[in-house]
Simulated assay, not measured.
Amino acid sequence: MNFQKLKYAVVVADSGSFREAARRLFMAQSSLSTAIRELEEEYDIQIFERTKRGIFITEEGSEFLSYARDVLSQVSVMENRYLDANQKKLFSISSQHYDFVSEAFAILLATDEEHTHHYRLLETSTTHVMENVKNAYSEIGILYMNAYNQKVIKQYLNHNELQYTEMGTFQPHVFVGINHPLADRETVTQADLLAYPSVTFEQAQGSSAQLTEEALDLAEESTQATIYVSDRATSINVLVKTEAILVGTGILTSPFRDMMRTIPIVDAEANHMIYIQNKYRKLSAEAEHFIEILADQLTDVIDVAGDEPA
C-alpha cells in the first residue's frame, strides 16, 4: 500500500480539483493525475469522475476515501509515537458539550509542570466523539448513555473495537437562566418543560436520532421551538437571555453556575456518564491523569461508579 498516494487522493477530494490539489502538494498536476490513476488501477475502482466541469467523487470513491482517511490517521499516530522522540506528543479528548469536562481540561493544563505535550479538547457531536476515538484522533471520548441510546452506542463501540468505562450516574436536570420562570423551583417534571423553547446541540448529518446529546427528547410533545446550537457559549447566552431550557447532567463546575440554575427532573430515568477508548490501547499517563481529575470533579455531584470497562 502506498500511503503517499492515499494522501494525494484525500487532498484532491478536499481541494475539489487536481489543479488546486497539485498547488497544495507542491507538485506538477500531471504527476498528481498519474499517481491517482495508478491508485485507481491498483484497487480496480474509479475514485473520481473527471468532467469538463471538474471532478466528482464516485460512490465507490467516497467509501474508499473514508477508509483512506482512517488509514492515514493511524499512520500519523504511529509516526508521532515512534519516529520523533523529541517532538511533543499530542493528548486529545473528544466530548459532548460538558462544563465539567472543560474545567477538568483546564486543571490538566495547569498541573502540567514538564510541558512535554500539546493538548486538544474537541466539544462535538455524539457521532464525532466516537469516530474521533475510533480513528485515534482523540485518545478518549466523554459521553452519556441511557436506556434510549445504549443499544446504538454499544453496537458502534463493539463494531469498532472500542470499550467504555462508567464514571457514574446522574439524574437529568434542566438548565435555565436565573430569571427564568422555573428558576425558583426545587424540582420539575417533563410536563413542566413543554411550555418553553428547548436548546439542543446540533448532531452530525445523518446520525441516528438516538444519538441526541440531551438526556430527554421533548421535541415530539412540545409545541415550542427547538433552538439548535453547536457550542456551549451560544447555548449559555440563549439560556441567560431567553426563557429557553436545556436538558443535561445538571453539573456546573465553572463560574457559569452563577448565571444559571439547574433543577432535577423528577420523572426522568437516571443516565450513565462514560468514557470510551480503544479496546487494545493502554491509556497514556495523561489520559489516566485527566480521568482522575474528572472523577474528582464529579465526586460530589454524581453517584460514582466502579472503574470496570465494558
Score class of each variant (00 low, 15 high):
H118V: 00
S138M: 03
I107Y: 06
L121G: 07
H159Y: 03
E131M: 14
H117K: 12
I107Q: 14
F105W: 08
R120E: 11
M130E: 10
H97V: 10
D112Q: 07
S125M: 03
N158S: 13
S102P: 00
N160H: 15
S125E: 06
H97Q: 08
K154N: 10
T111N: 13
D99M: 07
L108V: 02
V129G: 02
N146G: 12
L122I: 15
N146Q: 02
T127E: 10
V101G: 01
D112P: 04
K154I: 10
Y119C: 05
H128G: 00
L121N: 09
V133T: 07
E139H: 10
F105D: 03
Y148Q: 09
T124F: 05
N146M: 02
A110L: 09
M130I: 07
H128K: 11
I153G: 01
E114Q: 13
I107C: 00
M130Q: 10
T127P: 00
V152E: 14
N146W: 02
K151Y: 08
T127S: 13
S138T: 11
N146S: 13
T111C: 03
Y144I: 01
I140S: 04
F105V: 00
M145E: 06
N132P: 00
H128N: 15
E139Q: 13
H128R: 12
T111V: 07
K154T: 12
E123P: 01
Y98P: 01
N135P: 00
Q96E: 13
Q155T: 12
E103I: 06
N158Y: 06
M145I: 13
E123I: 01
F105A: 06
V101C: 04
H118A: 08
F100C: 03
N132W: 00
T127Q: 12
Y119R: 09
Y156R: 06
K151M: 10
H118K: 14
N160W: 04
F100W: 07
